[in-house]
């Protein structure tokens, strides 16, 4: 049987959710018997292949226009989209920025940080513009939500195993956590 293709990518994230994917440890190796990780931010190939994958996984919140593009591309190229982690599911800790005026936040990040000398707010046309932070499901349709900061390796393994069995995972008990 051909392996099920899975792609992951991250948006405004701390990488903790991907760490949790790696924390599946030997179970990740077992999964690789049945799935093929076509692309992830921590492998050589970063972008989901044009021919598409079965499962797309996004971690992190939508915080700028690049995030929106990445999310839309993943949505177009996958059949089942998983929002993984509190930031992807709810907006998470990144939404703290919504408490502040955008210029105030940019100034704080690029000019006023204690270690910065002669800081400048980046303004290249090539960069994404910051937007009001929100969950992935505010931009594209999400099929499966796995909250958690980060979600436990158990929850991720459970969700992928259920999908491999042809079932939609329903998180309960210790697999459903918001922190």
């Amino acid at each position: 049987m051909a392996k099920v293709k899975v792609a992951t990518d991250w948006l405004a994230a701390c990488a903790g959710c991907h760490m949790s994917v790696l924390d599946m440890d030997e179970r990740l190796v077992q999964l690789l018997d049945k799935i093929e990780l076509t692309s992830t931010p921590i492998t050589d190939l970063k972008h989901p292949p044009k021919e598409g994958v079965t499962v797309g996984i996004l971690t992190g919140a939508i915080s700028n226009t690049t995030n929106i593009e990445v999310a839309k591309q993943m949505r177009e190229r996958c059949q089942i989209l998983i929002a993984l982690g509190d930031c992807a599911v709810f907006g998470g800790i990144v939404t703290m920025r919504n408490f502040f005026d955008m210029n105030e936040a940019l100034k704080r990040a690029y000019v006023e940080t204690e270690s910065t000398v002669d800081g400048k707010i980046p303004c290249s046309e090539e960069l994404g513009r910051p937007v009001r932070v929100c969950a992935v499901n505010q931009v594209v349709k999400v099929d499966i939500h796995i909250p958690g900061c980060p979600p436990s390796p158990d929850a991720i393994y459970y969700a992928l195993s259920e999908l491999l069995e042809g079932r939609i995972p329903v998180l309960t008990g210790d697999n459903l956590k918001y922190d």
Partner: peptide, 26 residues
């Protein structure tokens, strides 16, 4: 109501209800 930076997470009655009713997103 983001739980990850809340002091009550784990003891919060609102959170417990959301778990009970399987709220995995808003």
């Amino acid at each position: 109501h983001y739980c990850m930076y809340c002091e009550m997470s784990g003891d919060c009655e609102l959170q417990a209800l959301a778990y009970r009713y399987g709220l995995d997103h808003w």
